[in-house]
Design a protein around this nucleic acid. Structure first.
Lengths: 174, 174
DNA sequence: GTAGTGTTACTCGGATAAATATTGTCCGAGTGACATCGG
DNA sequence: CCGATGTCACTCGGACAATATTTATCCGAGTAACACTAC
């Protein structure tokens, strides 16, 4: 039960990208600098977010990353699943069958109660994550964050975002 | 987001130990055989359960493991925390502070919203696990499990449990 | 001045190592049961 | 026959490798902007 460190970075990056205007992009190097992370390694996670259709990437100069849809339509669950994988954390190995007494397979048609309980707990976990939208994170930060921190963040985004002429004109539209 | 394989083994072992009578014990080797696991490695997990005061171990011949308290007072959360550790899966590295612009520490007195959301989800996860008692698992299995499987399990427990003369006379009492 | 073209610098992406956590195995310390021996 | 005692086999516990996963780094493919040249 340990989440990779990349999850934190991924969420912060998505939240930052939610603050860029219109269809502008932001390079991965800028995101890495924004959080003091290794650029090369952050790209790996950004790439996973791209594969999960949360981000899209534009190559070339003035290229970078941007959201594929509005921040209201991205939940923390989307990000966690993109980074950590979609399969549940608890995988039942059906060790109940591995005892010395070999029974017919028909004795195990009922699902393992332990597995059921663990998966139920994980559904609760995912449901809680699915309720939090990236827009909520951004809004709460804008409303209650420290003014100095907000100013620094906005300045950083404004300095590093790259406007785009083509592409999806309103990628953030609901 | 991946739980160790040992969690499954640990829960099965605790459920099995909940079926032994009175203050009897069951050797770790028998538990390992019961699920087709490596005895040496299972001991590692049983040892963690012992350190968490869920099991207690008796050395010597006729020794083994038994529960320290009634199965009604042991939850799946207790077991998961004993194996996977008590610290939360998501650890906020405070990467928001690592940007190029160094702000005063007073700008970060408010907790990170992302961290808060992740911990909230994890609380939901743990709450769901805390609601499931080992006695529930055992009772459901006894009520709805396959008769052949139940018979095999009971026979196995009866064959391998070792009655104790001394020690806590009623360790399962509430 | 404008259009076409070649260069260039910047981007992401995947392949490649290092570090760490997990999984698996082994041997040793300790203890109670058992057989033996003496009364 | 009963009790004390020494041996022994069985238990758990911690120290020691092998493997898998995560983390970190590097270099290459691709692309659009930019500068230059020709018209």
């Amino acid at each position: 039960m340990k989440l990779g460190e990349g999850v934190e970075a991924a969420i912060h990056c998505v939240a930052t990208l939610a603050s860029v205007e219109g269809n502008s992009t932001m390079p991965g190097a800028a995101l890495a600098e924004s959080f003091g992370l290794s650029p090369s390694y952050l790209l790996k996670h950004l790439n996973m977010l791209t594969a999960a259709r949360i981000l899209e990437s534009l190559p070339g100069p003035a290229g970078g990353y941007r959201l594929t849809r509005a921040a209201e339509r991205i939940t923390l669950l989307d990000i966690v699943l993109a980074i950590e994988g979609r399969e549940p954390a608890f995988r039942c190995g059906e060790i109940r069958r591995n005892g010395p007494v070999k029974l017919d397979a028909s004795a195990y048609v009922k699902p393992c109660g332990i597995n059921a309980a663990m998966l139920r707990a994980e559904r609760a976990y995912r449901a809680a994550l699915a309720e939090v939208k990236v827009s909520d994170i951004v809004a709460e930060y804008a409303a209650e964050g420290d003014p100095r921190s907000i100013a620094a963040s906005c300045a950083f985004v404004a300095r590093h975002q790259r406007p785009q002429k083509s592409g999806s004109q309103n990628p953030k539209q609901t």
